[in-house]
Design a protein around this nucleic acid. Structure first.
Lengths: 334, 334
DNA sequence: TCCGGTTGAGTTAACGTTTACCCATGATAG
DNA sequence: CTATCATGGGTAAACGTTAACTCAACCGGA
């Protein structure tokens, strides 16, 4: 049913090895017309490479295994996969994503992926955080994406949160803002690092770090129904007080959306009265707001591409954590 | 480096076949203690099944190949994959998703997946639509998910749009609403079918189908920046006219969100003045609105589960298009 | 005691591919 | 004209696993 090299060889009147060489061998010595004849025959017969058979010979399948921790449903985390896939397919490699779930913990998921003998395995998380993999599983993983080990010893690709915060704050300051506020994402690694970058930029510009202008936008780590009212209360207090901020850097686009709503309700104009900037460049939000939001785009696609290059040996494996820069997307909110 | 059955056999002092039988053979005749001893040894040595090797023997790898048309980034389409994965993993099967992209058309993507010799291949789309696969590719695909062939001859799983619309409209009518309006998704298959179900339910209740109360919420098939103002204009006109609707069935949750905004601006209360119901149960929206939205949940997970059962031969392959029912999620907007 | 049957495990071959090695043919140079 | 070499292609083995077959040992019943 399924056509094999042998079928083609019989049809062409040559040996199996010749067919193999004609179809897959790079530029091994072979008469050009023989090669063409065989290729035509293969197409005609509908030959499809049997990768498992090749895999048993080579010891691996042309796959990059990705163990996804937290469902890869997050609108931007899928960019990691797309970046990986785009790069990998240039090398005839496929990406095999398996997600960790309640029924299958990290170690089990890694083992499941290993069974297929991928060329390399990466461990990717939905948002930037620390991970601790069990010893055995850890050995199988070649690269962490969007997460890092606590000891920072493992090769990892993460967004350069701190640099991004520095950059965007610097950008606000260079645009004449003098009293920027920061509406943070408490309890998240990204939030902490972004806040550090914010503070660092203020210091670099010899501006005072006013603690009252640094606040939490949500109560837990994620959005609750209270997020909206919290943001509103916080911004209300800021605008009512003396020394009201002339710019608000939001922990992410989602918070920026709430900030837009709050400011509109309070009658403040963006960017005239208050400039808004943010992080993530979440497609549903950032470009749709009015005015469109200036934001630091998470380098998910770039991390995916880089990861593919590293795992396929095209780029050297980083020692420890490699921070991948965000991209500044200038729109009209500043 | 990698430990094989032979390594275990040597360590245990038995033959390779005995090890194979002990680890994978169901209940083949074998002394229980031998089996246990071998299993313990395998764990100790860190044996991981070499699936490509088994695959070459069996002719297939324990994979369900999924060709995803349109990036599987849509917040609900991922449920298809999760449903598939959950079911498949019960049978020790993995799901291998490859997305069609600009660089790789449907036929090429299917061929790429075929190389791995999956047990079966499904073709899934991001939203409900018609697809026409090229002949060769078509033969490799065992099931369409969320899409259908024009001639309806191919086995396909799609959401029961029309039934769902009938059900939710019936639900509105049973809750005393008499003048329901429909804010449609023009140009989309789902929209057409939902509208048909809406009309059908009105007729079933002997109510007139008022064409003025059936309108498009967006200009093209998808959301543009104008969606918001279009919905607002439409609802404004409805409420201003005589015979204003006492319920609005929205083409999807996204439209419902716009409707909420429009109604709030116009001072209409939900559900007291106007009931709202919708389709999709999009997690970011439906449960977060105030009041939470009553909506027909797309059966994506169910389609995934069913697809796995069909592709693995646990359930009979449907002849033609099988419509999978939505689930009514009652919240407080009616 | 002998024999059929059952149980446990070994032997061999096969899956489709690639790779290392070998051989025949013809061309080229001395 | 012959020795050498490049060229094109064949042969055989190997990858790790499983399936079909074979064989030895042991047990119970006649």
């Amino acid at each position: 049913m399924r056509v094999s090299l042998e079928d083609i060889a019989r049809a062409a009147g040559v040996s199996v090895k010749t067919v193999s060489g004609a179809l897959h061998g790079g530029s091994a010595r072979m008469a050009a017309d023989t090669r063409e004849r065989i290729q035509a025959l293969a197409t005609e017969l509908g030959y499809v490479t049997n990768l498992p058979a090749r895999g048993i010979r080579q010891g691996w399948l042309p796959l990059i295994g990705v163990v996804a921790d937290g469902v890869i449903t997050s609108p931007f985390a899928t960019h990691i996969i797309r970046g990986l896939d785009g790069e990998a397919s240039k090398q005839q490699m496929s990406v095999f994503v398996t997600t960790v779930s309640a029924a299958r913990d990290a170690a089990a998921t890694i083992a499941e992926v290993e069974r297929f003998r991928p060329r390399a395995i990466a461990y990717a998380t939905m948002y930037h955080k620390f991970v601790d993999l069990p010893e055995a599983a850890d050995r199988a993983v070649g690269l962490l994406i969007n997460c890092r080990s606590r000891d920072a010893a493992r090769a990892a690709l993460v967004p350069a949160e701190r640099d991004a915060a520095f950059t965007i704050t610097d950008y606000l300051l260079r645009h004449g803002r003098r009293r920027p506020a920061f509406l943070n994402l408490p309890g998240l690694l990204a939030g902490e690092l972004r806040e550090a970058g914010f503070r660092q930029a203020l210091r670099a510009h010899d501006l005072p770090v006013v603690e009252e202008r640094i606040g939490a936008a949500v109560s837990g780590g994620f959005y609750s129904d209270k997020a909206e009212s919290l943001v509103q209360a916080r911004i209300g207090a800021w605008l009512a007080g003396a020394d009201a901020p002339d710019a608000i850097l939001c922990g992410n686009d989602r918070i920026a959306l709430e900030a837009y709503n709050a400011l509109r309700r309070l009658g403040a104009r963006i960017p005239d009265d208050v400039a808004i900037a943010s992080f993530d460049n979440q497609v549903d939000i950032a470009s749709r707001l009015d005015p469109p939001l200036t934001t630091m785009a998470l380098p998910h696609r770039e991390m995916g591409q880089l990861a593919a290059d590293i795992l396929l040996g095209l780029t050297e494996t980083p020692e420890g954590v490699l921070e991948v820069p965000f991209r500044l997307v200038e729109r009209r909110s500043v």
